[in-house]
């Protein structure tokens, strides 16, 4: 039995998980935690999230065999090893849905389409460019301008009856579009749906460019935005991309899940090679 933790520092939130992995491959999810960063120190939040997971499992730091970091967590001082974001989201997606053959990771700063196999191996990938208009942070900003909470975004978007198109290229232009829409008294629902459709268009093009042809698992923070997922399905159907698109309530934890599971795998492999890193 191996105990492994995964800590994912994203640009908007810090996520942590704790897993028990048995020799027969079965797993037990022992703990999870999530903190929005909101101008706090991500390293402190990572430590806090890790300890909260330990508390949930009734374990101590010494009980953990491997602490795996991912995302921007490569400087976490108590990590055993680090895995790249795509690697961990791919593994996390397979854990959440074994039928997944592609991952659409949409976080606060960018989006990635990743084609994977049944083992969670990355076969190909493509990222959005550095423009922020395909990201969760942009959506958060717009919600703030409209005076609505993040939790309301999804439901409001689904109520839209005449979505307004926004610039799909540039966040600055899109924000200008939104200001104009507000002055023209366009409803928040239609504005949000317009933004969702614009983002969905970019994301489905990403999926197409990596040759996705089977179940797509949406991960990252925007997987919790049901309006975003609905817009994505709508856009993909319009483009005759008929593969199933799925999300999971724990999609936002996919990176941390994948990190913990790969950490457990590495621990066992290093133990076989008699090359275990000393406890840090």
């Amino acid at each position: 039995m191996t105990i492994a933790a995964g800590i994912d520092i994203g640009s908007g939130a810090v996520k942590a998980t704790l897993f028990e992995v048995n020799k027969d491959g079965t797993t037990k999810w022992l703990g999870k935690d999530l903190h929005r960063i909101r101008q706090r120190d991500p390293m402190e939040l990572a430590k806090e999230a890790y300890h909260n997971c330990l508390d949930q499992a009734g374990l101590k730091e010494d009980d953990v065999d491997y602490v795996a970091s991912t995302g921007d967590g490569e400087t976490i001082p108590f990590r055993t090893g680090h895995f790249y974001t795509m690697t961990t989201h791919a593994r996390g997606a397979i854990y959440l849905d074994p039928e997944a053959r592609a991952v659409l990771d949409v976080g606060a700063l960018n989006g990635r389409a990743i084609k994977i196999d049944e083992r969670g191996k990355v076969l190909s990938y493509k990222m959005t460019s550095q423009c922020a208009s395909g990201s969760g942070q942009f959506l958060e900003n717009i919600a703030r301008y409209l005076g609505i909470s993040q939790d309301e975004i999804g439901e409001l978007s689904k109520q839209a009856d005449d979505p307004e198109k926004v610039s799909g290229i540039c966040a600055v232009l899109a924000e200008t579009d939104v200001i104009n829409m507000v002055s023209r008294e366009i409803s928040a629902s239609n504005i949000l749906k317009g933004i969702h459709l614009s983002m969905a268009g970019r994301l489905s093009r990403l999926l197409k460019s990596v040759g996705v042809d089977d179940v797509v698992m949406v991960t990252g923070g925007l997987a919790n935005d049901t309006g975003m997922v609905a817009a994505l399905i709508e856009d993909m159907e319009a483009q005759k991309m008929m593969m199933p698109v799925r999300r999971h309530d724990d999609s936002i934890q996919a990176g941390a899940i994948g990190a913990a599971l790969w950490g457990a795998y590495r621990y066992e492999r290093l133990k076989e090679l008699d090359a275990l890193p000393a406890a840090s």
Partner: peptide
């Protein structure tokens, strides 16, 4: 970082 990170992962995992 992206190239080196995915390279390291591919060596460690595959």
């Amino acid at each position: 970082r992206e190239q080196a990170g995915t390279f390291a992962d591919s060596i460690k995992l595959w």
